[in-house]
Structure formats: C-alpha cells, structure tokens
Design a protein around this nucleic acid. Structure first.
Length: 408
DNA sequence: TGGCAGTCAATAGA
DNA sequence: TCTATTGACTGCCA
C-alpha cells in the first residue's frame, strides 16, 4: 500500500478500515509455525520490490502478479472483515489506480474507492458465517487467503503463511483493535495513524478519520482475541504480546506487562490520562529500551530505519536512548520518543513491521505535504541489502518540534 | 542569559 | 553495514 493510497483513504474516511487492511501487509512471524519454511524477514521485506515494481507498469491497476500490495489489500480487506474473499475482491477490483505514479514520483492523488461499509460486512459476517468462535473466523480468512493466492499469484509463504497465519494476522489486528479500545479510544487510535506510519504531526486529520468504524470491529475482534488466547502459536502473536493482553481472553481486561503510558506504575489496563492528560503516566524506559533493542535484533531492523520511520529521530539518538535510557521521571520532551517506542511495541508484529514499511511510504507527511520522496525510497525496502539506499536518500526527518504524538 | 534536555550529523569502531 | 560516540545546535525555562 502506498502512502498516497493511505492518504486517499484517510480523506475518504475509511482509514480505520484501510489502515488495518494496510497493516495486514503480509508480515511473517519468524516464530510462527505458519510461516513458510525458509522465509525470513529479509525475504519478506524484499518482497516489497515486487509490489512497487508494479508502478513502473503503465496503468498498473489491481490485477496481476505485480500487484502484491493490492493483493495484500484484497486479502487483507477480506480478512479484516472476517469474511471470505468475494467481498474483498469486489471492494477493489476495478477500482481506479489509486496512485497515479509516473517515473517514480508521486503525482496527484485520486480518491480510493471506499471499502464497503464496515457494519454491513460485520453483519454479513455474523449472519452469513454464523461466527461464534475464532475458528469460524479463521475459516473465513482461509477463504480469503485462497482467493488471495489466486489473485496475487503469490505463494502464501510470501508473508502471510497459509491459512491459519492469516487468521493470525486477523487475530493480531483485531486483538490490537481491542487493545486500543481498552486503552482509550481516540488516543490509542492516534497511534494507528501516528508516526508509526510515518506521520510526525499530531494534527493530521487522519487521527479523527481513523476512528471511524473501529468500534464495530470489537465484536469480531473479541472472537479473534479468544482464538489468539487459546492458539497463540497460530496467531502470530508473540508470547509477550499475549502476555500483554493483546490477545487475551475476550472478556479479560488487557494486562500489559509494560504499563501503558497513562497508567500508574503497573496499573493494569487503566488509563488515567485517556483524555490526553499525562498526569501519572509512567513508562519503564529501561524495559522499553530493552524490548526495542530485542525486537530490532530479532528482525534485523537497523537502528537507523527504526529511528527514522517510527521515532522520527536519528540513529544516534536512538542508539543513545536504547543504551542509556533516562528514568521516566527525569525525561521532559524526551518522553515522546519513548511513548512511540511503547506504542510500537504494543502493536502486533505484523503491524509493527508494516509501520516500518508504511512509514517509509508515508514519510513525506512528515514534511506536511511536501513530497521529498525519491524513486529509490519508493521502490526499495528499508531493510537488509537496500539499507544503504536510505543512507543516501534525503532523510525523512521531522523537525523535533513537529514530532509529537498524542499522549496515550 | 546560562543551564539543561533533546537531538542531529559526522565519524570512529566493530 | 551497523552501532556507539561525540561535538554542536536548538528550544525551553528559571
């Protein structure tokens, strides 16, 4: 999914759906048994090149192998709605090319055809599939994936894994949604349209738009959370995520191991600053730093990429923060950076990785509409072999003054 | 105005 | 290629 597509979705008020769909870019969980053998994160991210290569084709629309992102999108939309692929197909087949790209540069955005109203889908889900358990949802997602396979021409191993892994993505997504609900609606949602995805400005309209429809996911999300709870190995959620309550029992309150900013100390699931206040919030900066360090190593994500994409900071800053985290109480504006890390950690794995990729594509938002993207940044993955590209390209920096995030 | 926090860019080192 | 370090800069605040 391209940044401009997201922008279009945002402006059309469907970001809540599409963001999730976008987040369902197929991210393999290297710890999940559902990931195709031999696939590693590097492989996956390199797959981005497939996706973007489509743009070099005239009129690259929504069909064909090269449209991996579109395929992702179809599959994701279908899965995200917790239903078979037919709807996902109808949602996007024939849609105009969202992003008029030429010669490797972005041009005028055209509105993306909206997803069908989410409530209709949710209703359809409930009535047509008689969903009552996570397994039912998973079956639906399998349908979606089957079709995804045909349409995208991609092997499941491309990232989603077979069947159950997609369900895992669903579970992760929905669990995340539930988690967000649990942590406070609009502010948590801000995280979804937040610097994780490349925007460094808290004032973007996306924040409001991104809320639409999320509550309607809750019901289904709870099913998936239940599934994830009982089948974490199939959900793609890591143990910590499960422990964090992201995939806990549907009726359990979230129980994050890392106290959410906004809760006091280890106050579980409570948000004392839900309305934006920051009184009493406290993050264990050491733990955050340790976990971020661990995740970066786990996925071989360079500090520079994470710092730039997620935190809108420089590599050196991140390195310093990770190695020498100051106590929360001694931080001032620097808390913002740790909040971002925390938010990122709270997201499901696929979402975290997607954020890293999407941020790459959306990062011009950091410049408030000025598109500084080069062809390289659009067609290259920020990982592994191509990381040098990012060193060469203009840094998608956010001025620190702009780089603030709503408190959680 | 000086101190401090936060950050960056450059660079050294692994 | 990636990470750690460091000098310099900026903005905030007393």
């Amino acid at each position: 999914m391209l940044s401009s597509e997201l922008v279009g979705l945002e402006t059309s008020g469907v970001l809540s759906d599409s963001a999730t769909a976008a987040s369902l870019h197929t991210i393999p969980d290297t710890h999940s048994s559902s990931v195709a053998p031999g696939l590693n994160p590097g492989d996956f991210f390199n797959a981005t090149d497939f996706a973007v290569s489509r743009h070099s084709r005239p009129g690259g629309g929504f069909s064909g192998f090269g449209g991996m992102l579109e395929s992702d999108f179809r599959g994701a939309s279908a899965a995200d709605y917790g239903m078979g692929s037919a709807l996902g197909m109808n949602s996007f087949q024939g849609a105009p090319s969202i992003n008029s790209m030429s010669s490797g540069s972005y041009t005028t955005l055209t509105p993306l055809q909206s997803l069908p109203p989410i409530n209709t889908v949710a209703d359809k889900l409930r009535h047509d599939t008689n969903v009552s358990t996570g397994f039912s949802l998973m079956n639906s997602s399998n349908l979606a994936m089957n079709n995804y396979d045909k349409l995208g021409g991609m092997n499941m191993g491309m990232g989603v894994g077979v069947g159950g892994s997609m369900a895992g993505s669903m579970a992760g997504s929905m669990a995340a949604n539930s988690m967000l609900n649990g942590y406070g609606h609009h502010q948590a949602m801000a995280g979804y349209g937040s610097p994780h995805h490349g925007t460094c400005s808290p004032s973007e309209p996306r924040y409001a738009a991104s809320m639409n429809g999320y509550d309607q996911f809750t019901h289904n999300a709870q099913h998936m959370r239940g599934f994830a709870h009982h089948h974490p190995q199939r959900t793609g959620l890591t143990a910590p995520m499960v422990l964090n309550g992201l995939s806990g029992h549907p009726h359990h309150a979230p129980s994050p191991s890392i106290p959410p900013p906004g809760s006091r100390g280890g106050e579980r699931g409570s948000v004392s600053s839900r309305d934006g206040g920051q009184a009493g919030e406290e993050i264990n900066t050491k733990e955050i730093a340790a976990r971020v360090t661990s995740e970066l190593k786990r996925y071989s994500i360079p500090q520079a990429v994470f710092a730039q994409r997620v935190l809108c900071r420089s590599q050196g800053t991140l390195s310093d923060l990770l190695r020498n985290p100051k106590p929360w109480s001694k931080l001032k504006s620097g808390r913002e950076t740790f909040r971002r890390m925390w938010k990122w950690l709270q997201e499901p794995e696929f979402q975290r990785m997607s954020a890293l990729r999407l941020a790459d594509q959306i990062s011009p938002i950091c410049h408030r509409g000025i598109n500084l993207m080069t062809a390289d940044t659009q067609i290259r993955s920020p990982f592994s072999k191509t990381s040098a590209i990012f060193a060469r390209n203009p840094i998608h920096r956010c001025r620190p003054g702009l780089a603030t995030v709503d408190s959680v």
